[in-house]
Deep mutational scan, measured.
Amino acid sequence: MQIFVKTLTGKTITLEVEPSDTIENVKAKIQDKEGIPPDQQRLIFNGKQLEDGRTLSDYNIQKDSTLHLVLR
Results as ranks from 00 to 15, higher is better:
Met1Arg: 08
Met1Trp: 11
Met1Lys: 15
Gln2Met: 07
Gln2His: 12
Ile3Pro: 00
Ile3His: 00
Ile3Arg: 00
Ile3Asp: 00
Phe4Met: 03
Val5Gln: 00
Val5Glu: 00
Val5Trp: 01
Lys6Val: 13
Lys6His: 10
Lys6Ser: 08
Thr7His: 06
Thr7Phe: 09
Thr7Asp: 07
Leu8Ile: 04
Thr9His: 07
Thr9Phe: 03
Gly10Tyr: 03
Lys11Ala: 04
Lys11Gln: 08
Lys11Val: 10
Lys11Glu: 08
Lys11Ser: 12
Thr12Ser: 09
Ile13Ala: 03
Ile13Trp: 10
Thr14Asp: 10
Leu15Arg: 00
Leu15Trp: 01
Leu15Glu: 01
Glu16Asp: 11
Glu16Val: 13
Glu16Asn: 13
Glu16Phe: 13
Glu16Arg: 08
Val17Gln: 10
Val17Leu: 10
Val17Pro: 03
Val17Gly: 10
Glu18Ala: 05
Glu18Pro: 13
Pro19Thr: 15
Pro19Phe: 12
Pro19Lys: 04
Ser20Asp: 12
Ser20His: 07
Ser20Gln: 06
Asp21Arg: 03
Thr22Gln: 07
Thr22Trp: 11
Thr22Val: 12
Ile23Val: 08
Ile23Gly: 05
Ile23Glu: 01
Ile23Tyr: 02
Ile23Arg: 01
Glu24Asp: 03
Glu24Phe: 13
Glu24His: 02
Glu24Leu: 10
Glu24Lys: 02
Asn25Ile: 10
Asn25Arg: 13
Asn25Gly: 09
Asn25Lys: 14
Val26Thr: 06
Val26Tyr: 00
Val26Gln: 00
Val26Met: 09
Lys27Met: 10
Lys27Trp: 08
Lys27Ile: 02
Ala28Phe: 15
Ala28Trp: 07
Ala28Glu: 06
Lys29Phe: 11
Lys29Val: 14
Ile30Glu: 00
Gln31Ile: 07
Gln31Glu: 13
Gln31Ser: 08
Asp32Val: 10
Asp32His: 08
Asp32Tyr: 04
Asp32Gln: 11
Asp32Ala: 14
Lys33Leu: 05
Lys33Ser: 07
Lys33Phe: 14
Lys33Ile: 11
Lys33Asn: 13
Lys33His: 13
Lys33Tyr: 14
Glu34Thr: 02
Glu34Arg: 07
Glu34Gly: 07
Gly35Asp: 04
Gly35Val: 02
Gly35Ala: 11
Ile36Glu: 05
Ile36Arg: 03
Pro38Tyr: 14
Pro38Gln: 10
Pro38Asp: 11
Pro38Phe: 15
Asp39Ile: 15
Asp39His: 07
Asp39Ala: 13
Gln40Val: 06
Gln40Ala: 11
Gln41Leu: 14
Gln41Phe: 06
Gln41Pro: 02
Gln41Val: 04
Arg42Gly: 04
Arg42His: 15
Leu43Asp: 00
Leu43Val: 03
Leu43Lys: 00
Leu43Trp: 01
Ile44Phe: 14
Ile44Thr: 08
Phe45Ile: 09
Phe45Ser: 07
Phe45Leu: 03
Phe45Met: 12
Asn46Phe: 04
Asn46Asp: 05
Asn46Ser: 11
Gly47Met: 12
Gly47Phe: 11
Gly47Ala: 11
Gly47His: 14
Lys48Thr: 15
Lys48Ala: 15
Lys48Ile: 15
Lys48His: 13
Gln49Arg: 14
Gln49Ser: 06
Leu50Asp: 00
Leu50Asn: 00
Leu50Ser: 01
Leu50Tyr: 01
Glu51Phe: 03
Glu51Val: 07
Glu51Pro: 05
Glu51Met: 05
Asp52Lys: 04
Asp52Met: 08
Asp52Gly: 13
Gly53Asp: 10
Gly53Phe: 10
Arg54Lys: 06
Arg54Asn: 11
Arg54His: 10
Thr55Asn: 06
Thr55His: 12
Thr55Arg: 13
Thr55Glu: 13
Thr55Asp: 09
Thr55Gly: 08
Leu56Ile: 09
Leu56Phe: 05
Leu56His: 00
Ser57Tyr: 12
Ser57Lys: 11
Ser57Arg: 13
Ser57Trp: 05
Asp58Ile: 05
Tyr59Leu: 05
Tyr59Trp: 04
Tyr59Ala: 06
Asn60Ala: 06
Asn60Phe: 15
Asn60Val: 05
Ile61Gln: 01
Ile61Met: 10
Ile61Gly: 00
Gln62Glu: 11
Gln62Lys: 06
Lys63Pro: 12
Lys63Ser: 12
Lys63Met: 09
Lys63Thr: 04
Lys63Gly: 04
Lys63Asp: 05
Asp64Phe: 09
Asp64Arg: 03
Asp64Glu: 08
Asp64Gly: 09
Asp64Pro: 02
Ser65Ile: 06
Ser65Gly: 04
Ser65Trp: 05
Ser65Thr: 15
Thr66Lys: 03
Thr66Met: 05
Leu67Val: 08
Leu67Met: 08
Leu67Ile: 03
Leu67Thr: 01
His68Ala: 04
His68Ser: 04
Val70Asp: 03
Val70His: 06
Val70Arg: 02
Leu71Phe: 03
Leu71Asn: 15
Leu71Gln: 05
Arg72His: 11
